[in-house]
Design a binder for these strands. Structure first.
Length: 498
RNA sequence: GGCGACGUCGCCAAGUGGCAAGGCAGAGGCCUGCAAAGCCUUUAUCCCCGGUUCGAAUCCGGGCGUCGCCUCCA
């Protein structure tokens, strides 16, 4: 079985054939570091993190490169607003970006070059473009000549004449063609600048990606990713520069993700309708945010909504509960002969089917929504097994339970969704007082206090003293601890009060 | 104006020629002292019209609607 990917260039799904068997060379456009990233930016990075993880899980050796644009108009503007140096703005938000990626559980790139550390290579490529007749210098600026590259527009599916008939092309007399774009810009006073054959200046936006991707990966590399709003002009321009400069194919497969929307409108910094990733993560756990996003295919638009996030949280709890219940059932004393063989076979075949479907869905252009469906279908099968056999788990069933749990953990890990089933129980200090009151507990250890309370409740239940038993449960509920009665006795889990 | 994408159960969302996954929400039932967790049952013919086909949500044409790109943007 092979992996199929949707290639923006051809607008179809194609079999993924890497340039080198068993290896994937991919490049994903990183951020311009002038602000914290918002949840829409995060979606794109999450998408390609999952793609990368999946390739690795399927046995590929992945080289993952992501640039950081640390010199740019917006950084300069922000620095001016705050009265600090552009480099300080860039440093601040580069640090913040890396922290944000880590907080979302996104694996670090193999290489993460900075634009400001790639200036000589950019100048070199610009010189080659000029030498090849693909670029020209005017007053210290250098422009790429779109007319010099006949294939210009092939990625985004437009042609130059169509573009020019649109009303929004800026007019600049110094350009040979309105669509020509800057490779090098003369620095204005106070702006960051580097020496170049055309004078002190700084690079245009698109050139860095051409240079860095080629420098780190060589051409053509396998996958170039980004959000769909980068297709034009950014990626079109990258492609034009690279292919014009090298005469070889730039990228084998172009992958683009759909945009996050708010009220059916693109979330963007310029529209001001954005939520910062860090603010969302302050309220929703990482697995919940990942699940929320991965329940929609990466190429589709996704509406940001706290209602959707709340639903994702409930869905994630379903998985967490299952993993915890599998672990709990496993710890049961082997009481008897165990589950009937029909029940065991059902679970085993559901396990195989889940893995098979997961792979098939992910192979099909990384269909995480379908893959999650496979996991949830298996969750039901596992829950059914537990429901049917929870009071009758035999020694022979233990292995089955372990495998079920491991499968869920493994497959979700491919999506970067970490589920352990371990409940973080912070035994609140307040339970000591409650235990003192309801169970006569005289110590000071919260965990001991909880045990005393459960013991007291068990005794009360044995006497069918429901009032006393419920008082314990209510008391624990006040500090956020939930009591659950299971076939193996009562247990306590933690649930945030909000 | 040009180019492109999308329109599937109450909400979200897979599925791109052969009897419509999954999540959330709702209803009924089971389990439970009551709960919690969970299980079972139950809710769609796929925006509209026309066409191709033995057969279409899935292909083609038209219409309506939404979104994106065409300017910085993940």
């Amino acid at each position: 079985m092979s992996i199929r990917v949707h290639n923006t260039m051809t607008r179809t799904k194609e079999e993924f054939v890497p340039r080198e068997a068993g290896k994937v060379a991919m490049y994903v456009c990183g951020p311009t570091v002038y602000n914290h990233i918002h949840i829409g930016n995060a979606r794109t990075f999450l998408t390609f993190d999952v793609i990368r993880r999946y390739f690795i899980w399927r046995g590929f050796d992945v080289t993952f490169v992501q640039n950081i644009t640390d010199v740019d108009d917006k950084i300069i503007k922000r620095a001016a607003e705050e009265g600090i140096a552009p480099a300080d703005v860039a440093d601040t938000y580069t640090f913040a970006f890396r922290a944000a990626m880590e907080s979302l559980g996104i694996e670090r790139p193999t290489a993460q070059p900075l634009a400001t550390q790639t200036i000589p290579q950019m100048i070199d490529m610009i010189e080659r473009l000029i030498a090849g007749g693909h670029a020209y210098a005017v007053d210290g600026d250098v422009y790429f000549s779109v007319r010099s590259f006949p294939a210009y527009g092939k990625l985004s599916g437009r042609d130059i004449d169509d573009l020019e008939s649109g009303a929004r092309v800026e007019v600049d007399d110094r350009k040979q063609d309105p669509l020509d774009f800057a490779l090098w810009k003369t620095a204005k006073p106070g702006e960051p600048h580097w020496p170049s054959p055309w004078g002190e200046g700084r690079p245009g936006w698109h050139i860095e990606c051409s240079v860095m991707s080629e420098g780190e990966l060589g051409l053509p590399f396998d996958i170039h990713g980004g959000a769909s709003d980068l297709i034009f002009p950014h990626h079109e321009n990258e492609l034009a520069q690279s292919e014009a400069a090298t005469g070889t194919q730039f990228v084998r497969y172009w992958l683009h993700g759909g945009l996050l929307q708010v009220n059916a409108e693109k979330m963007s910094k310029s529209l001001g309708n954005f939520m910062l990733l860090k603010d969302v993560l302050a309220v929703y756990a990482v697995p919940v945010v990942r699940l929320f996003m991965l329940q929609t295919h990466y190429r589709s638009p996704l509406e940001f909504s706290t209602d959707r996030l709340d639903e994702a949280r409930t869905a994630f709890e379903r998985i967490e509960n299952l993993v915890r219940n599998l672990e709990w059932a496993k710890s049961a004393k082997a009481m008897s002969s165990g589950a009937p063989s029909a029940s065991r076979e059902l679970l085993a075949s559901a396990r195989d089917a889940a893995r098979e479907k997961f792979v098939a869905e992910m192979d099909d252009d990384f269909n995480t929504a379908g893959a999650l469906g496979a996991i949830f279908e298996f969750a039901r099968a596992a829950n059914t097994f537990l429901a049917d056999n929870q009071s009758d788990v035999g020694v022979a069933d233990i292995e089955l339970l372990v495998h079920a749990k491991e499968l869920i953990i493994e497959l979700l890990a491919v999506l970067g969704v970490v589920v352990t089933g371990a409940v973080d129980i912070e035994f609140p200090p307040d339970v000591v007082g409650i235990a003192n009151q309801l169970a006569g507990y005289a110590g000071t250890d919260p965990e001991e206090a909880v045990r005393a309370l459960l013991a007291a409740r068990a005794a009360a239940r044995a006497e069918r003293n429901w009032t006393a038993a419920d008082a314990v449960r209510d008391g624990l509920a006040m500090v956020g601890l939930v009591v659950e009665d299971t076939a193996q006795g009562a247990r306590v889990t933690y649930r945030a009060v909000n």
